[in-house]
């Protein structure tokens, strides 16, 4: 870790709300014993989770542990089950179509690969929610979009097409689009994956800036342990569809649970491979 990163982490550590303070805040997400199966294969087991106002929650876990599936539930891309997920105090499974649309205007999502509309320029992408969901005038939309592009350090790049963007710019553009409606809650899927450390660290700063300046609650799915330490207020660790740990950064970091430590230090679960067993498995018996 560079010195810069260390100080940034220290600064954020100092800014972190205390456990007591967090507990007094409103819950913006409440997940209540959520199970989910694809066909006969269960991938989420009894998930209980809450995210508080203004909090940055990082969800971590190995590949296939169910992070994306959980995120898709949280943003309403999976069929909502009544009583299971509340967003901004609203039970997603009990909302009418109209209310669900209304709710979705108040959240923002940035997908792993940006999911920018390839047929539109960056600024058209950012303006799309405004254009489709509000009656604002073109000039006002321009101003709002440019504001958000500037927050994401993209001013001057609005005229580019998504295919002309670098990986880091693409992620920032998709974040700009996610915050253009001034949401109270944003979801970021793997913001730092595929980026070099410098760019990824800049993205962390952006996430912190958003939270501090716009008072947004943020849910981040991430593989990047360093980034999680830097930005998270709390970390949730998923393991094979179950929540293994969900706690403040220091607590998770100093956890004595071996599986948690394995995940944080990227150690394979089966570091020791028995050669005979391995050969037998390859042979298929």
């Amino acid at each position: 870790m560079t010195n810069d990163a260390l100080t940034a982490e220290a600064v954020n550590q100092a800014n972190r709300p205390s456990a007591e303070e967090l507990a007094t805040r409103r819950k913006v997400i409440e997940v209540d014993s959520l199970d989910w199966s694809f066909g006969t294969r269960q991938v989420l087991f009894d998930i209980n989770l809450d995210v508080r106002e203004g909090e940055i929650m990082v969800i971590m876990g190995g590949s296939g542990s169910g992070k994306t599936t959980l995120l898709r539930h949280l943003v309403g891309l999976m069929p909502p089950l009544p009583g299971k997920i509340k967003l901004l105090g609203k039970d997603m499974g009990a909302l009418s179509r109209m209310q669900l649309l209304e709710l979705k205007r108040r959240i923002g999502v940035a997908f792993q690969f940006g999911a920018l509309f390839s047929s539109m320029s960056v600024s058209e992408n950012v303006k799309l929610p405004l254009r489709e969901l509000t009656d604002l005038e073109e000039r006002t939309m321009d101003i709002m979009a440019n504001m958000k592009l500037e927050v994401c350090n993209l001013s001057g790049f609005g005229h580019l097409m998504p295919s002309d963007l670098s990986g880091g710019m693409m992620k920032r553009a998709s974040i700009a689009r996610a915050i253009v409606m001034d949401p109270k809650l944003i979801f970021l899927d793997e913001p730092s994956s595929g980026l070099d450390p410098v760019v990824s660290s800049a993205l962390d700063d952006l996430i912190l800036k958003l939270r501090d300046a716009m008072d947004i609650s943020v849910v981040v799915v991430s593989h990047d342990v360093e980034s999680a330490y830097k930005i998270a207020d709390r970390i949730t660790i998923l393991d094979k569809g179950r929540i293994l740990a969900c706690d403040r950064v220091d607590a998770v970091r100093n956890s004595t649970n071996e599986r948690v430590q394995n995940l944080l230090h990227r150690r394979s679960e089966q570091a020791e491979i028995d050669p005979t067993e391995y050969l037998r498995r390859l042979a298929g018996d």
């Binding site: 943003v75 891309l77 649309l101 709710l103 997908f111 999911a115 509309f117 799309l128 929610p129 969901l133």
Partner: peptide
């Protein structure tokens, strides 16, 4: 998916 989460049918 992006359309859907924006609330654009």
């Amino acid at each position: 998916d992006a359309l859907q989460v924006m609330g654009i049918n």
